[in-house]
């Protein structure tokens, strides 16, 4: 017996045509074919999806949580990126 655990996979489901694939959870599978089937059996039992992506968890790369401030706070004061920053006359109804 090798007693080797099946790798962990992250599952992404498209709920219906036109939407993004969204992360729904994870599961174990020996290979990619099985991972997609397991995702189908585990995460779409109630018609939750029309398309499945699986990615072996070890291939997901993420930023360090400690970098959070440096990465994301600088976007905080760039109000000019939002439409409400611009003052326009009321007569101009929809722009």
């Amino acid at each position: 017996m090798t007693n080797k655990e099946w790798p962990l996979w992250e599952v992404f489901i498209r709920a219906k045509q036109g939407l993004n694939h969204k992360h729904v959870g994870s599961l174990h599978a020996a290979d990619q074919t099985m991972a997609i089937e397991n995702a189908r059996d585990v995460y779409t039992r109630r018609m939750e999806g029309v398309s499945i992506w699986v990615v072996e968890s070890k291939y997901i790369h993420a930023n360090e949580p400690s970098e959070q401030d440096a990465l994301f706070d600088p976007a905080n004061d760039k109000v000019y990126r939002h439409p409400t920053f611009y003052i326009l006359p009321e007569e101009l109804n929809h722009m």
Binding site: L27, H28, V42
Partner: peptide, 11 residues
């Protein structure tokens, strides 16, 4: 034999 396949066979 494993949770995922328990679910699969039940389906």
């Amino acid at each position: 034999p494993v949770l995922e396949q328990d679910i699969a066979l039940t389906n």
